[in-house]
Write a protein that binds this DNA or RNA. Structure first.
Length: 497
RNA sequence: GGGACGAUAGCUCAAUGGUAGAGCAGCAUCCUUUUAAGUUGUUGGUUCCGGGUUCGAAUCCCGGUCGUCCCA
């Protein structure tokens, strides 16, 4: 252990180190192996019987977050998973020596355990009157300031534990994410879906159009891709006879980082045999309905960006993709689909709306630029956008009336695409064609093993993907994806000693 | 990848190119029902890093690191 200089009063680390050494010298372990926690803070407070002070004994444990000494009595607060609880220390209860130790050896940020009885203070706060306490784990570093909390964005993300200790909104928001995922699991399990786990390391990164991360397996002497979607593995399970499956898993896309993008993010994908995209509408509404009831506690939430109230109750709007395009353009543009005049008309419409229309873009890409820039951001209320052009998703079933369209929906809420779903393509010949059209020259990117699986027959099915992070942004009112990811991706920082 | 902005005490923030400050935390003091507790006193700085301009740089210039936002 390092030497301590004479005047350490300004150095909070040194002051705490000195206290720690004094504890050790007195034969007390400042980092205990265990401590009794009979109740969480909230559960303990719930045991208090009105007007019956000092009857119920509890043992609580947590981090010391406020420390108010007033001569012979002191109020402190500790914080555990359920939040804060106040403790009351008295000299006449603990005795001169122990009370002195309480004042001398403890600091804000320490983890302590305390046993005592519940009572209500004259200001009405249920509090533990402490009979015995233990320093369980000594904090050598001071906590950030309590009133302003921690605001430095970099420190919030890099040292999330500090953010969680001192910023109650962050605690609540990130805990809500856990409850959101639990609620979704519960909805799916109650509908007899099996939760499965499929490989992160893949030979072919399929199921979406995105740049993958590449890594290397030493023993096999070969490169692997980190998955960019769950789709092709889960559909193999439909072939294998798992009729209802889902996975909530991390996927990786080697693209930019922004308010709405993290290189690794969480996707729910669900597949239900003998269903279709319309069955997925019912399912996603059930998922949202349960989320509203069990997690949010209301069927109306405020959309952070626009201030509008988003209403999840009642019927959700269903509208065809090209109806929205025609509406935005202000003419019957879609009637020209398949004619020679279509592309020039699309370019003119896009230009008029101030959207990009690059020469090297295909026509459907220009149309989708209009959708992405002018239409999607305005879809605040839950909206199923259906009948998209087939080029946008090569894994969906073609529409029977119009084979240029696919049987899909994009669920848009709060101006974001929250969940795409479709009737799954199960015709191996069509699937191969779609793959080849998409791959272009890069034929090695085709997942031939998946096509082989389709040749063994896949039942008709509805499938859906839900971006969990974006869902959490929506439901928590967060401004950035980093606010709903515990440890967002950051550039490496040098480790400081 | 491009642009704008930012980095000062443990934390939150000040500081015309002219002695780097405050609040909280810390240290010392008084206080047996407090709620950002209060009281009296007080310590604490590689101003992100490296260059440059200047009599003099937290401040101006150049380069870098990290972050935030916007754009692609």
């Amino acid at each position: 252990m390092s030497d301590i200089p004479q005047d350490i009063s300004h150095d909070q680390y040194a002051v705490r180190l000195k206290k720690l050494q004094d504890l050790r010298a007195a034969g007390s372990d400042p980092f205990r192996a265990n401590c009794t926690q009979s109740h969480f803070s909230g559960d303990a407070k719930a045991l208090y019987v009105e007007g019956q002070d000092n009857l119920v004994t509890v043992s609580v444990a947590g981090r010391l977050v406020t420390f108010r000494v007033q001569g012979g009595s002191s109020f402190v607060k500790i914080q555990d998973q359920q939040g804060p609880i106040q403790l009351y220390f008295r000299r006449d209860v603990l005795g001169e020596e122990r009370y002195g130790e309480f004042k001398k050896s403890l600091d804000l940020g320490d983890i302590i355990g305390a046993t005592g009885t519940l009572f209500k203070t004259k200001t009405g706060e249920i509090t533990v009157r402490v009979d015995a306490f233990t320093l369980v784990s000594k904090a050598l570093r001071p906590l950030p300031e309590k009133w302003h909390g921690l605001t430095d964005a970099e420190q919030v993300y890099r040292q999330r534990y500090l953010d969680l200790i001192v910023n109650p909104e962050s605690r609540a928001r990130l805990m809500m994410r856990s409850r959101i995922v639990a609620s979704i699991r519960h909805t799916l399990e109650s509908r007899k879906f099996l939760e499965v786990e499929t490989p992160v390391l893949e030979g072919v990164a399929g199921g979406a159009a995105a740049r993958p991360f590449v890594t290397h397996h030493n023993a096999l002497g070969t490169d692997f891709f980190l998955r960019i979607a769950l789709e092709l593995r889960l559909k193999r399970l439909l072939v294998g006879g798992y009729d209802r499956v889902f996975e909530i898993g991390r996927i990786f896309r080697n693209e930019g980082i922004s308010r709405k993008h993290n290189p690794e993010f969480t996707m729910l994908e669900v597949y239900q045999a003998y269903s279709d995209f319309q069955g997925m509408m019912d399912l996603v509404k059930a998922i949202f309905s349960n989320l509203c009831r069990d997690v949010i506690g209301t069927f109306e939430i405020k959309h952070a960006a626009s201030g509008q109230m988003i209403n999840f109750a009642g019927d959700w709007r269903t509208v065809r993709y090209f109806d929205l395009i025609d509406e935005a353009v202000g003419s019957k543009l879609s009637a020209l689909r398949g004619t020679e005049g279509y592309r020039p008309a699309v370019i003119e419409a896009a230009t008029k709306l101030g959207c990009e229309a690059r020469d090297d873009w295909q026509t459907f890409e220009i149309v989708n630029e209009i959708f992405g820039k002018k239409i999607e951001p305005a879809l605040i209320q839950p909206t199923f956008v259906t009948h998209l052009p087939k080029e946008l998703c090569p894994l969906a079933k073609l529409n029977q009336q119009d084979p240029g369209l696919i049987d899909v929906f994009e669920l848009c809420i709060g101006g974001m695409e929250v969940a795409p779903a479709y009737s799954e393509q199960n015709d191996p010949f069509v699937q191969r064609e779609m793959f080849e059209a998409q791959a272009g020259e890069e034929k090695q990117n085709i997942d031939h093993d998946f096509l082989l699986a389709l040749e063994h027959a896949m039942p008709p099915a509805g499938g859906m993907g839900v971006g969990i992070d974006r869902l959490c942004i929506l439901l928590t009112g967060a401004e950035s994806i980093r606010d709903v990811i515990l440890f967002p991706s950051m550039r490496h920082s040098e480790n400081k000693g």
